[in-house]
Simulated assay, not measured.
Amino acid sequence: MQTIEMSGTKVLVLSAQGTPVATEADGNDMIGEAFSAGATLVAIPVERLGPDFLRLETRLAGTVFQKFVNYHLRCAIIGDVATLLEGSKALRDFVRETNKGRSIWFLATIGDLEARLARENA
């Protein structure tokens, strides 16, 4: 885990290795880490997501993402979710809609996050 500055935004970048985000409490821990680091955005590698995180019927992603929004934090899921998107129209719709907003994004690379922040803060 490291904190970096990207286009005027302090980003907490989680490593791909570590405890998976598999419960609401894990989401709370990330929010606490972000506040401790002074970050306003958390970049989470897709590898860190528990196996049920993006299964929308579990409501885990929605609950965790809503907490990020409630605490005025942004979140970027970094990595390839194409396989998951192929199997779920609901997830495809969810990713498309969140990517239109300013709070929750799904991006392929950390470079894509940097580019998006640069465009947003230009």
Rank of each mutant, 00 (worst) to 15 (best):
I4G: 13
E5F: 04
E5S: 13
T9M: 07
T9F: 00
V11Q: 01
V11W: 00
V11P: 00
L12N: 01
L14A: 04
L14N: 00
Q17Y: 11
T19M: 14
P20Q: 12
P20S: 13
E24P: 06
G27Y: 05
G27A: 09
M30A: 01
A34V: 02
A34F: 01
F35C: 06
S36K: 15
A37P: 01
T40F: 05
L41P: 00
V42N: 02
A43V: 00
A43E: 00
V46D: 01
R48G: 05
G50W: 06
P51S: 15
F53C: 01
R55D: 03
L56R: 01
L56C: 03
E57C: 07
A61H: 01
A61W: 01
T63I: 11
K67H: 15
K67P: 00
F68D: 02
L73N: 01
L73D: 03
I77E: 00
I78P: 01
A82Y: 10
T83K: 07
G87A: 11
R92E: 14
F94A: 11
F94H: 12
F94C: 11
E97L: 11
T98L: 08
N99P: 11
K100G: 07
G101R: 07
G101C: 08
G101H: 10
R102E: 15
I104E: 04
W105K: 15
T109P: 05
T109Q: 13
G111A: 13
D112G: 13
R116K: 14
R119Y: 11
N121D: 02
N121G: 06
